Computed example of a mutant assay.
Amino acid sequence: MRSLLWFGAVGASAAAVHFAVVWWLVERFGWPALAANVAGFALAFCVSFTGHHRFSFAAQEAKASQALPRFALVAGLGFVSNELMYALLLRLGLEYRLALLLVLVAVAAMTWLLSRHWAFKGREA
């Protein structure tokens, strides 16, 4: 349960960074939402990996050198899913902030499962 609470806190922090970057780039600099989403993802990835390695899945004792490439694959899969769903929702006419919020929540469940059971899995006893 503690792992899930940390995952939520770290995920919410990373999602907030992601959301804020997208919003800022779209509103301040007029970036297209899908392009801003790439920048938001890149910054959120740093927050996410660090927080999940140190807090969410620390008890699994995975070495960073093992967990980073695995988590990068999980995050990459999550991002591809994110970008495809985001593009679809934008094409359907949803407002970009609402669409992004829905996508971030949807991808979180997949990320948790893959992170817990593979990316941050430490050595077997």
Rank of each mutant, 00 (worst) to 15 (best):
G93I: 01
G8Y: 10
V107G: 01
W24Y: 14
V103S: 04
T50S: 14
A109H: 09
T50A: 15
F41Y: 15
F7Y: 14
R116D: 11
V74Q: 07
F57E: 02
M110E: 13
A35M: 04
G51N: 11
L73A: 13
H53W: 15
L43C: 09
Q66D: 07
L102F: 12
L104I: 12
A44D: 08
A119R: 04
V38D: 00
V107A: 05
P69A: 07
S13A: 15
A35P: 00
L68W: 05
A67C: 01
F49W: 10
F71Q: 01
A58W: 08
L92W: 10
P69M: 04
W31K: 06
F79I: 09
L113S: 11
R97T: 11
L34I: 08
L94M: 08
L5I: 15
G30C: 03
W31D: 08
A62R: 01
A109D: 06
L100D: 09
A87V: 03
V38H: 01
L104M: 12
R123F: 12
R91A: 15
G51H: 09
F7N: 05
A125I: 10
W24G: 12
S115T: 01
L92R: 06
A75L: 00
L113F: 13
R2H: 15
F49E: 07
S65H: 05
L84E: 10
F7G: 02
L113R: 07
V74R: 01
G30N: 00
L102C: 14
G30E: 05
L113P: 01
F49H: 03
F19T: 14
F7S: 03
A125S: 14
A33T: 06
A35Y: 04
L4A: 15
L43G: 15
A109K: 02
C46D: 06
L113G: 13
K63W: 12
L43D: 04
F19I: 12
L68C: 00
G78P: 02
L25M: 12
L34A: 11
L100I: 07
L98D: 03
F79V: 08
V47F: 13
A119V: 07
A72N: 07
A62Q: 03
A64M: 05
A16N: 06
R97P: 04
T50L: 13
W31F: 15
R91K: 13
L25A: 12
A16S: 12
A15W: 01
S56Y: 02
W6H: 13
F7V: 07
W6T: 04
L101W: 13
R70H: 10
M85Q: 09
A20V: 13
R91W: 14
V105D: 06
A109V: 13
L43Q: 01
A67L: 00
S115F: 01
G78M: 04
P32G: 11
E83R: 06
A59M: 02
Y86V: 03
F79T: 04
W118L: 09
E124K: 14
A12R: 07
L104K: 02
A15I: 06
L77M: 11
F45G: 09
R28A: 14
G93D: 08
T111R: 10
A64I: 08
A106P: 00
V17R: 05
A87C: 06
L101N: 10
L84T: 13
A59T: 09
R91V: 08
N82V: 00
